[in-house]
């Protein structure tokens, strides 16, 4: 770990003031310190924001939920309002990491979790994300966990968060305080980037931006919500494929649906065309296949992760069957 200056902030404004170039905020630290020990990340200054007053979960005037950036994954998953109104989020949080890590990891930090790509994690290997211009070791390498959607010739990494996938399905907004002290809100759809030719830029945040809260819209009534995660161990493994589903039936037709996917791309993946395919239609296996066709129309395997294409299709179908209580076609 490279030496760094350690500074404790007592208010968001002092935090953003301290966070100049080469600085990083630290809250849970579960990903940042992991990467600092490997010197994948080498901040010169750590601004400890754990003493900021950002640990509350409150109702918004619109009837949604405002989640302080420092609310731990454990507290968020167990929060009565989240369990009742946003079960997809509780389930996603509970599927991630371990009891110990969830007690530390925060809502804000989890959104900014870095990829688990093996080549990113090993400074002796090329990685355009860690060392722009050095190449992508995963292309042509071992790429079992890598992206099948939205990747580029420069980077095929995936975003590892479960929480963010559920928040994407819930249309969360991210509240940010900038280095200039000005606050703003970013739809979660616009927070994470695809790798294109600058995979080192993972989000649209500017240097010094501090996530202060996540805003959930008012809960949708009468929805089926589920988070299904497929992985290599029964517990404590990152998603190969995950599906967050919020679905409302309107009589015997699908009234509305939000579907977000983990393990497939550089960001929590959501495709409006998939949802358009389903909305207003009568559920059937044929329809679900059409939705899967749409989702995977540009899917590209890299060899080691080719299986994710059929796996994503099957998982999506199973989730939709459950959500619509459709029996499998004989």
């Amino acid at each position: 770990m490279r030496p760094f200056d350690y500074i404790r902030a007592d208010a968001p404004a002092t935090a953003t003031k301290e966070a100049g170039a080469g600085a990083r905020y630290i809250a849970g630290g579960t990903n940042l310190l992991d990467l600092m020990k490997l010197e994948v990340m080498t901040p010169e200054r750590l601004v400890d924001i754990t003493r900021l007053d950002l640990r509350d979960v409150e109702r918004t005037p619109e009837g949604g939920l405002k989640i302080g950036a420092l609310v731990t994954n454990s507290d968020l998953a167990a929060h009565p309002d989240v369990r009742r109104d946003y079960p997809v989020l509780s389930r996603a949080l509970l599927s991630g990491a371990t009891g110990q890590l969830r007690n530390k990891a925060t809502a804000g930090g989890n959104l900014l979790q870095r990829t688990r790509c093996y080549y990113f994690y090993d400074p002796a290997q090329p990685c355009n994300k860690r060392d722009p211009g050095s190449g992508c070791g995963a292309i042509g390498g071992f790429n079992r966990i890598h992206a099948i959607l939205g990747a580029s010739e420069h980077c095929i990494a995936t975003h590892p968060s479960d929480m963010a996938v559920a928040m994407r399905a819930l249309d969360a907004e991210i509240e940010v305080e900038g280095a200039d002290g000005a606050g703003r809100r970013i739809p979660i759809a616009d927070l994470h980037r695809l790798p294109s030719d600058t995979p080192q830029d993972e989000t649209t945040l500017a240097p010094g931006d501090l996530i202060t809260a996540v805003i959930l819209p008012p809960p949708a009534k009468n929805t089926f919500q589920a988070y299904r995660k497929v992985r290599d161990r029964a517990s404590y493994a990152f998603a190969l494929v995950s599906v967050a589903c919020v679905l409302r039936m309107d009589g015997d037709r699908i009234g509305g649906v939000a579907l977000a996917f983990g393990g497939l791309a550089h960001k929590p993946w959501r495709d409006p065309e998939v949802e358009a395919t389903l909305t207003g239609e009568s559920p059937s296996d044929d329809l679900f296949d059409k939705a899967a066709d749409t989702l995977l129309r540009e899917a590209q395997g890299q060899g080691g992760n080719d299986f994710k294409i059929p796996l994503a299709r099957r998982t999506l179908k199973a989730v939709l069957r459950e959500a619509t209580q459709t029996e499998a076609a004989a």
């Binding site: 350690y6 630290i26 630290g29 579960t30 310190l33 992991d34 020990k37 750590l46 400890d48 754990t50 454990s74 371990t98 009891g99 110990q100 890590l101 007690n103 530390k104």
Partner: peptide, 26 residues
């Protein structure tokens, strides 16, 4: 030393955490 095994688990304010993945200074 990376929060992947749990052997370092301790309680902080009654909650279990991986003590390897946090700084003493915090």
């Amino acid at each position: 030393d990376h929060g992947q095994c749990g052997a370092c688990t301790i309680l902080v304010n009654g909650r279990r955490i991986n003590s390897c993945l946090t700084l003493a200074a915090m």
